[in-house]
Amino acid sequence: MSFIEINHLQKIYRKATVTVPAVNDISFTIEKGEFLAIVGKSGSGKSTLLNLLGGLDTPTSGEILFDGANLFGEGKDGLVKHRRHRVGMVFQSFQLILGQTALENVELALAFGGISRSERRARALALLEQVGLADRADHYPTELSGGEAQRVAIARALANDPDILLADEPTGNLDTQTGEMILGLLQELNRQGRTVIMITHDPDMAKVAQRTIRMQDGQLQNS
C-alpha cells in the first residue's frame, strides 16, 4: 500500500452551459518522503489536483487514499482535520493575512490546531527561526520581501507538523535567486522526511524533484 493513492480522480466544473473536466480520471501513487513535481501549463488542471490533495476541494468522482483511508469519506470534519494536521500548503501569492504580523500569521495556524496560547508564541518563533526569519517576526507582510513572505508562509505550513507539504508555484512570484533559496528550503524539509508535492510550470524548477509528472488537459502524460 502506497502512502498516497489517487484512484480515478475526476473534478468537473460546470459553468453555465459548458462543463470543464479540470481533472479527468487520474490515477497514480505517491510514496512517503517523496519530492514530487507536477508540471503543466496553465489550465492543465494541476492546481485543481493540488487543491484536492489539500482537502480544499472535493472531487466529482474517484478517491484519494492517505494511508489507505479515503480523504473524502468523513465529510467536512475529515477535511478540516486533514488540512489542519496532515498537510501544509504554500501558495504562489503567499496568502498571508495582511493585518497580522509574521508571528501572528504562524500563531493563527497553531491556534486552529488547538495549541494553547502559552505554547503558541514559543513554537511560532521557533518555526520562524527555522526558516531564518526570527528577526522579522513582528513585521507585517507588506513590510517583507517576496522571499521573506514565502518563508513565513512555509513556517506557517509547518505549524502543526504535517507529513505532507503542498506547494502551488511557490517560486512563481519570486526572482530566480530567491526562488532557488525557497526550493533549497523545500529540499531541506524533504530531507527531514516530509513528503513534498510541488506544482510548477518551469521544467528547470522541477529538476530538484525526485520524480516529475506532467499534466495536460486534466490528464497525466507519461514521460
Binding site: 500548503m89 496568502q95 493563527l108 486552529f112
Partner: peptide, 16 residues
C-alpha cells in the same frame, strides 16, 4: 473573503 479562504486552508473549521 481571501482571508477567510486562508483561514480554511490552514485548518480553520466552519465553526471557528
Amino acid at each position: 473573503t481571501r482571508e477567510i479562504g486562508i483561514m480554511k486552508a490552514i485548518g480553520g473549521s466552519e465553526g471557528q
